[in-house]
Design a binder for these strands. Structure first.
Lengths: 341, 341
DNA sequence: ACTGAAAAAGTTAACGATAACATCATGGGA
DNA sequence: TCCCATGATGTTATCGTTAACTTTTTCAGT
């Protein structure tokens, strides 16, 4: 592999001059610069990033830690990577499956060893709180994307989570989109609007948005609290919805799989959507656009999430010394109206 | 950041001894090893990967290049990353959106600059042939995951693709799964089985599998060739299917979005699936499991694909000198039977 | 107690790039 | 004409690690 030294020998200049000629805006004569660059091109020179990193103390590498792979995570990661690369940073990706703390420690070790400039965590189910704590303890800039932090949202006695309040974050305003959904349903003449999904504490703002949306029109909330939020849970929920004393004319849900489970069971039983019951999902998974009827849902700004995460890290690296946690950003969700509501 | 030197000073040993004590199986006394390790732990020492990489000439980093993000790509990437990390390699991820060749060149530059040990490309629509050619020209181990290479499958005059025959590959045997699907339909009593999707040249084996499946039972192929393979194309295809002189009693498709478009239009028109027409998708996207009726489809071994890609690179790095392209692997697809067929 | 091989530790140099400082022209203004 | 600011280039040292070699210690076998 060709190094500065090779170019120096070929051109008869010193390594230093060659180095300067390849950088922007160092004082080198135009002629020298041109000949060096020509020579570099001809020899196929590529800077040795590791060497540069060693000397400058800056690796120009960020790290992204992802949970279970689904398409939302990929969009987030893609946006994160693209934003980072546009700023000249490569991104190393790691995945965590189980949330065991030995794994977290090993992960943190690897991140420190790589001398990453910063880390973005895109958790899925596993909270990654321990990982973030370990990284921050070592002075590593961190940003948590869509990770629940407030102790109110978690089981009692979670000290790790407490510490995470001091973490820069990108949050998703789920309340907003849910409120929009309810407004949309009300505007469409629906009055018995039921929420189906995880309970308030685990709804991450959805339930609050639901209540608020109803509140504005003097309607009162009613919910079917489910155990999980998969397709199968939706099918179960559908039966419970139909068994309600006063049958709902609209259902808003925790997420798309749940909504699609409900839709599936409704169609199976001959319940007409949206004529008899309007249905709104949450997340705007690809599936939502491909069902019959196509599912009205709330889309998550996945790309914005990834981009914002990168921007926050880049600001920290650039030296922004706002207090820990102060660079947090919230991105909005948006109602996508299709045929189901 | 604490380095070997710090530990050397603290313990009164030389850097070299410390280095040795931290490695496995170099001759260091047990007592020294223990004290060094204790000291390293206490000080929070982490090896400086860039320095090691510079000295050893091995970066222990692989690179994954991905196309447009969807959930299949994420599963592949996740498996690739996990397999690589298990072998001690970090993975740097890059995305390409457009296939313009300047972007490919920049990408290749970055990969060489990072002194990656190898590169896996997970193309989507863009073929990435130019990128692979550039990388291989520089002696970079490459593996192409599910990338069409045979000139027969491409427009004429594609010299770059020709060269790629000399690339290690992981291929997906789509023919197999499609054949299974046809067999399944025939076993279920279907006789007028129509293929809907891109033409033979672009079907990547699906069409051949379809024909072969029919052939075994003396049935003859009939197809609706679509322009694209999105949901909307499926809706259009549905109308054409229903307009056929002899209405099909089963439809196999190019992929799930297309199948779901067909299903959507069928339901809209009151065509009963699977009673009147059975429907089989391809890819097993998450959506397939969440429609009504749930879609029978052919699943792609996405995780195996990513894992195999990593294994091939690791073998190349380990010095396997089989001729270029010789480490290719084919992974099988599998029919997933649900309610639509 | 002595020898010599093996084990344990140390020394030097190098990987490739660049920061910091030193040197050497060049040439415009006094 | 001389001076010195400026620009162009060279020199040296260093980042953290480890390969290759050297030196010192240890101890089994006589």
């Amino acid at each position: 592999m060709v190094s500065l030294k090779d170019i120096a020998e070929k051109t008869g200049l010193s390594k230093m001059t060659v180095s300067r000629a390849l950088q922007e805006g160092s004082s080198v004569s135009a002629a020298t610069r041109e000949s060096v660059r020509a020579c570099a091109r001809k020899l196929g020179y590529r800077p040795h990033l590791a060497a540069r990193s060693l000397r400058t103390g800056c690796s120009r590498t960020l790290c992204a830690v992802c949970g279970e792979p689904d398409e939302r995570g990929f969009a987030r990661l893609a946006a994160f990577v693209e934003t980072s690369r546009a700023a000249g940073y490569d991104v190393t990706v790691m995945f965590v499956s189980g949330g065991d703390s030995r794994a977290a420690a090993r992960l943190a070790d690897g991140i420190f060893a790589a001398r990453a400039g910063g880390v973005a965590v895109f958790p899925d189910k596993t909270s990654l709180g321990e990982l973030v704590a370990a990284l921050q303890a070592g002075g590593m800039p961190c940003v948590a994307a869509d990770m629940d932090l407030s102790p109110a949202d978690r089981p009692a006695g979670t000290t790790v989570e407490e510490g995470n309040r001091l973490t820069d974050r990108v949050s998703i305003d789920r309340q907003w989109g849910m409120q929009e959904a309810v407004r949309h349903l009300i505007a469409g003449g629906r009055r018995r609007i039921v929420y189906a999904g995880l309970d308030r504490a685990n709804s991450r703002g959805r339930y609050e948005g639901y209540c608020r949306g109803l509140d504005a029109f003097g309607l009162s909330p009613e919910s079917i609290i489910t155990r999980g939020h998969q397709f199968a849970d939706g099918r179960t929920a559908a039966d419970r919805l139909l068994a309600m004393r006063a049958r709902p004319d609209a259902v808003v849900t925790f997420d798309d799989p749940l909504a699609l489970g409900i839709l599936n069971r409704f169609l199976e039983l001959g319940v007409k959507v949206p004529e008899e019951v309007a249905l709104v999902g949450f997340d705007d998974r690809p599936a939502a656009a491909m069902t019959y009827p196509e599912l009205t849902t709330v889309s998550l700004p996945n790309r914005e999430l990834g981009q914002a995460a990168a921007e926050i890290l880049l600001r920290r690296i650039a030296g922004d010394s706002a207090p820990a946690g102060a660079l947090s950003v919230t991105v909005k969700t948006q109602l996508v109206v299709r045929r189901s509501a």
